[in-house]
Protein backbone atom coordinates (compact mmCIF):
# COMPACT_ATOMS: atom_id res chain seq x y z
CA UNK A 1 0.00 0.00 0.00
CA UNK A 2 1.30 3.47 -0.88
CA UNK A 3 2.26 5.63 2.08
CA UNK A 4 0.52 8.97 2.43
CA UNK A 5 3.78 10.55 3.61
CA UNK A 6 7.19 8.96 3.66
CA UNK A 7 10.47 10.48 4.81
CA UNK A 8 13.77 8.75 4.08
CA UNK A 9 16.95 9.95 5.80
CA UNK A 10 15.45 13.43 5.84
CA UNK A 11 17.77 16.23 6.98
CA UNK A 12 17.18 19.95 7.06
CA UNK A 13 19.89 22.49 7.74
CA UNK A 14 19.15 26.22 7.77
CA UNK A 15 21.97 28.39 6.51
CA UNK A 16 22.11 31.97 7.66
CA UNK A 17 24.51 34.85 8.08
CA UNK A 18 26.91 36.26 5.51
CA UNK A 19 27.77 33.72 2.83
CA UNK A 20 25.64 31.14 4.68
CA UNK A 21 28.38 30.74 7.25
CA UNK A 22 26.07 29.72 10.11
CA UNK A 23 24.32 26.36 10.01
CA UNK A 24 21.37 25.40 12.16
CA UNK A 25 20.44 21.73 12.16
CA UNK A 26 16.63 21.55 12.24
CA UNK A 27 16.10 17.87 11.37
CA UNK A 28 18.52 14.98 11.27
CA UNK A 29 18.01 11.66 9.55
CA UNK A 30 14.25 11.35 9.91
CA UNK A 31 12.76 8.05 8.70
CA UNK A 32 9.02 8.04 8.96
CA UNK A 33 6.03 6.60 7.16
CA UNK A 34 2.37 7.58 7.45
CA UNK A 35 -0.39 5.27 6.21
CA UNK A 36 -3.90 6.14 5.11
CA UNK A 37 -6.39 6.80 7.94
CA UNK A 38 -3.73 7.20 10.64
CA UNK A 39 -3.81 10.12 13.08
CA UNK A 40 -0.30 11.22 13.91
CA UNK A 41 0.75 13.67 16.55
CA UNK A 42 4.21 15.25 16.48
CA UNK A 43 5.46 16.02 19.94
CA UNK A 44 8.51 17.78 21.23
CA UNK A 45 9.72 20.95 22.92
CA UNK A 46 10.12 24.28 21.15
CA UNK A 47 12.75 24.23 18.37
CA UNK A 48 12.49 20.46 18.15
CA UNK A 49 11.86 20.67 14.37
CA UNK A 50 8.08 20.01 14.36
CA UNK A 51 7.12 23.00 12.19
CA UNK A 52 10.08 22.39 9.87
CA UNK A 53 8.94 18.82 9.29
CA UNK A 54 5.38 19.93 8.50
CA UNK A 55 6.63 22.65 6.11
CA UNK A 56 8.74 20.05 4.35
CA UNK A 57 5.65 17.86 3.92
CA UNK A 58 3.74 20.69 2.21
CA UNK A 59 6.77 21.78 0.10
CA UNK A 60 7.21 25.19 1.73
CA UNK A 61 10.76 24.07 2.49
CA UNK A 62 13.18 21.88 0.57
CA UNK A 63 15.13 19.08 2.28
CA UNK A 64 18.89 19.56 2.58
CA UNK A 65 19.35 15.83 2.08
CA UNK A 66 17.16 12.76 2.02
CA UNK A 67 13.80 12.32 0.38
CA UNK A 68 10.19 13.09 1.15
CA UNK A 69 7.23 11.52 -0.65
CA UNK A 70 3.56 12.49 -0.68
CA UNK A 71 1.04 9.92 -1.91
CA UNK A 72 3.95 7.91 -3.31
CA UNK A 73 5.33 10.79 -5.37
CA UNK A 74 8.26 13.06 -4.69
CA UNK A 75 7.28 16.19 -2.75
CA UNK A 76 8.72 18.29 -5.58
CA UNK A 77 5.64 17.30 -7.63
CA UNK A 78 3.08 19.88 -6.60
CA UNK A 79 0.03 18.12 -8.07
CA UNK A 80 -0.40 16.05 -4.89
CA UNK A 81 -0.79 19.24 -2.84
CA UNK A 82 -4.39 19.34 -4.08
CA UNK A 83 -5.05 16.43 -1.71
CA UNK A 84 -3.49 18.20 1.27
CA UNK A 85 -4.91 20.78 3.69
CA UNK A 86 -2.41 22.79 5.73
CA UNK A 87 -2.74 25.12 8.70
CA UNK A 88 0.41 27.12 9.36
CA UNK A 89 1.73 28.14 12.75
CA UNK A 90 0.21 31.47 13.94
CA UNK A 91 -2.46 31.23 11.20
CA UNK A 92 -0.58 33.47 8.79
CA UNK A 93 -3.27 34.61 6.32
CA UNK A 94 -3.53 37.28 3.60
CA UNK A 95 -4.80 40.17 5.74
CA UNK A 96 -6.58 42.08 2.98
CA UNK A 97 -9.13 39.41 1.98
CA UNK A 98 -12.63 38.88 3.31
CA UNK A 99 -13.27 35.55 5.03
CA UNK A 100 -15.63 34.24 2.34
CA UNK A 101 -13.39 35.49 -0.49
CA UNK A 102 -10.38 33.77 1.01
CA UNK A 103 -12.15 30.43 1.54
CA UNK A 104 -13.45 30.61 -2.04
CA UNK A 105 -9.96 31.38 -3.39
CA UNK A 106 -8.45 28.52 -1.42
CA UNK A 107 -11.11 26.13 -2.74
CA UNK A 108 -10.45 27.32 -6.30
CA UNK A 109 -6.70 26.85 -5.90
CA UNK A 110 -7.32 23.28 -4.74
CA UNK A 111 -9.40 22.41 -7.77
CA UNK A 112 -13.02 23.16 -6.76
CA UNK A 113 -15.09 24.85 -9.47
CA UNK A 114 -18.58 26.24 -10.08
CA UNK A 115 -21.53 25.15 -7.95
CA UNK A 116 -19.42 22.64 -6.03
CA UNK A 117 -17.09 25.42 -4.95
CA UNK A 118 -19.95 27.61 -3.73
CA UNK A 119 -21.56 24.72 -1.89
CA UNK A 120 -18.28 23.76 -0.19
CA UNK A 121 -17.58 27.38 0.81
CA UNK A 122 -21.04 27.67 2.37
CA UNK A 123 -20.81 24.40 4.27
CA UNK A 124 -17.26 25.12 5.49
CA UNK A 125 -18.23 28.54 6.82
CA UNK A 126 -21.15 26.85 8.57
CA UNK A 127 -18.96 24.08 9.98
CA UNK A 128 -16.50 26.53 11.53
CA UNK A 129 -19.15 29.03 12.74
CA UNK A 130 -17.87 31.72 10.39
CA UNK A 131 -21.17 32.74 8.73
CA UNK A 132 -21.29 36.00 10.73
CA UNK A 133 -17.77 36.90 9.66
CA UNK A 134 -18.20 36.03 5.95
CA UNK A 135 -17.76 39.62 4.72
CA UNK A 136 -15.34 40.74 7.45
CA UNK A 137 -11.76 41.48 6.48
CA UNK A 138 -9.13 39.13 7.92
CA UNK A 139 -7.26 42.05 9.50
CA UNK A 140 -10.34 42.96 11.56
CA UNK A 141 -10.56 39.52 13.17
CA UNK A 142 -9.23 38.40 16.53
CA UNK A 143 -6.53 35.76 16.64
CA UNK A 144 -8.98 33.02 17.59
CA UNK A 145 -11.32 33.75 14.68
CA UNK A 146 -8.35 33.97 12.33
CA UNK A 147 -7.29 30.52 13.52
CA UNK A 148 -10.76 29.25 12.67
CA UNK A 149 -10.48 30.77 9.18
CA UNK A 150 -7.13 29.00 8.74
CA UNK A 151 -8.78 25.71 9.69
CA UNK A 152 -11.66 26.40 7.27
CA UNK A 153 -9.15 26.93 4.44
CA UNK A 154 -7.58 23.54 5.16
CA UNK A 155 -10.97 21.77 5.35
CA UNK A 156 -12.73 23.44 2.42
CA UNK A 157 -11.56 21.09 -0.36
CA UNK A 158 -12.02 17.94 1.78
CA UNK A 159 -8.39 16.82 1.59
CA UNK A 160 -7.14 13.29 2.17
CA UNK A 161 -4.24 14.54 4.30
CA UNK A 162 -4.61 17.34 6.84
CA UNK A 163 -1.43 18.87 8.26
CA UNK A 164 -1.93 21.07 11.32
CA UNK A 165 0.78 23.13 12.97
CA UNK A 166 -0.26 24.16 16.50
CA UNK A 167 -3.95 24.51 15.51
CA UNK A 168 -5.16 25.13 19.09
CA UNK A 169 -3.08 28.30 19.52
CA UNK A 170 -5.26 31.36 20.05
CA UNK A 171 -8.51 29.41 20.37
CA UNK A 172 -10.70 30.04 23.40
CA UNK A 173 -12.00 27.05 25.35
CA UNK A 174 -15.33 26.79 23.50
CA UNK A 175 -13.65 27.07 20.06
CA UNK A 176 -11.08 24.52 21.18
CA UNK A 177 -13.80 22.05 22.20
CA UNK A 178 -15.63 22.69 18.90
CA UNK A 179 -12.44 22.08 16.92
CA UNK A 180 -11.63 18.95 18.90
CA UNK A 181 -15.09 17.66 17.94
CA UNK A 182 -14.37 18.40 14.27
CA UNK A 183 -11.06 16.55 14.54
CA UNK A 184 -12.75 13.61 16.22
CA UNK A 185 -15.22 13.20 13.34
CA UNK A 186 -12.97 12.69 10.32
CA UNK A 187 -14.06 13.71 6.81
CA UNK A 188 -13.81 10.04 5.77
CA UNK A 189 -12.32 6.87 7.27
CA UNK A 190 -9.27 7.31 5.04
CA UNK A 191 -8.56 10.92 6.03
CA UNK A 192 -5.06 11.13 7.49
CA UNK A 193 -4.05 13.72 10.08
CA UNK A 194 -0.66 15.00 11.11
CA UNK A 195 -0.85 17.35 14.05
CA UNK A 196 1.94 19.19 15.87
CA UNK A 197 0.83 20.39 19.27
CA UNK A 198 1.60 20.78 22.94
CA UNK A 199 -1.97 19.75 23.92
CA UNK A 200 -0.99 16.35 25.29
CA UNK A 201 -4.26 15.68 27.10
CA UNK A 202 -6.32 15.85 23.89
CA UNK A 203 -3.97 13.93 21.61
CA UNK A 204 -3.56 11.06 24.06
CA UNK A 205 -7.12 10.04 23.31
CA UNK A 206 -7.28 11.21 19.70
CA UNK A 207 -4.05 10.18 17.97
CA UNK A 208 -3.21 6.67 16.84
CA UNK A 209 0.53 7.28 16.39
CA UNK A 210 3.18 9.66 17.70
CA UNK A 211 6.44 11.02 16.37
CA UNK A 212 8.58 12.60 19.06
CA UNK A 213 11.33 15.01 18.09
CA UNK A 214 13.97 16.62 20.22
CA UNK A 215 16.50 19.02 18.77
CA UNK A 216 15.78 17.68 15.29
CA UNK A 217 16.36 14.07 16.29
CA UNK A 218 13.68 11.40 16.06
CA UNK A 219 13.21 10.10 19.62
CA UNK A 220 10.15 7.95 19.15
CA UNK A 221 8.06 6.89 16.18
CA UNK A 222 5.20 4.43 16.54
CA UNK A 223 1.79 3.70 18.06
CA UNK A 224 0.84 6.21 20.72
CA UNK A 225 -0.34 3.41 23.01
CA UNK A 226 3.29 2.19 23.29
CA UNK A 227 4.72 5.60 24.04
CA UNK A 228 6.09 6.24 27.49
CA UNK A 229 4.77 9.73 28.31
CA UNK A 230 7.22 10.14 31.16
CA UNK A 231 10.04 10.28 28.60
CA UNK A 232 8.64 13.24 26.63
CA UNK A 233 11.56 15.60 26.13
CA UNK A 234 10.74 19.03 27.49
CA UNK A 235 14.13 20.71 27.67
CA UNK A 236 15.28 22.63 24.61
CA UNK A 237 18.94 21.91 24.02
CA UNK A 238 21.55 23.74 21.95
CA UNK A 239 20.58 23.59 18.29
CA UNK A 240 23.95 24.50 16.81
CA UNK A 241 25.86 21.26 16.89
CA UNK A 242 27.49 21.62 13.52
CA UNK A 243 29.88 18.76 14.11
CA UNK A 244 27.33 16.21 15.14
CA UNK A 245 28.09 12.86 13.60
CA UNK A 246 25.17 11.11 11.97
CA UNK A 247 26.39 7.77 13.29
CA UNK A 248 26.21 9.00 16.87
CA UNK A 249 22.56 9.96 16.70
CA UNK A 250 20.21 8.20 19.03
CA UNK A 251 17.14 7.37 17.01
CA UNK A 252 14.51 5.26 18.67
CA UNK A 253 12.21 4.21 15.91
CA UNK A 254 9.68 1.57 16.87
CA UNK A 255 7.55 1.96 13.78
CA UNK A 256 7.03 -1.11 11.63
Amino acid sequence: MTSIVECRSLCKVYKSGWWSSRSVYALRDINWSVQSGERWVILGPNRAGKSTLLRLIVSLLQPTSGHIYRFGESATKLATLGRVGYVSENALLPAHWSVEGLVRWSGFLHGLRGARLLQRVRSTLEQFDLRHYAVSGIRQLSRGIRQRVALALAWCHQPELIVLDEPFDGLDSSSRVRFQEILSTPLSPTTTYILATHQHDFVRGWATHALVLDNGIQRYCGPISHYDWERTPVVTTNNNENDLQLSQRRTLCDAP
Binding site: V58, S59, L60, L78, A79, T80, L81, G82, V84, Y86, S88, L92, L93, P94, A95, L102, W105, S106, L109, H110, G111, I138, L153
Partner: peptide, 10 residues
Protein backbone atom coordinates in the same frame (compact mmCIF):
# COMPACT_ATOMS: atom_id res chain seq x y z
CA UNK B 1 0.08 34.74 4.07
CA UNK B 2 -0.80 34.78 0.35
CA UNK B 3 2.51 33.01 -0.38
CA UNK B 4 1.72 30.23 2.09
CA UNK B 5 -1.77 29.77 0.64
CA UNK B 6 -0.52 29.75 -2.97
CA UNK B 7 2.60 27.67 -2.39
CA UNK B 8 0.71 24.96 -0.49
CA UNK B 9 -1.73 24.62 -3.39
CA UNK B 10 -1.12 22.44 -6.46
Amino acid sequence: GSAILLFTSP
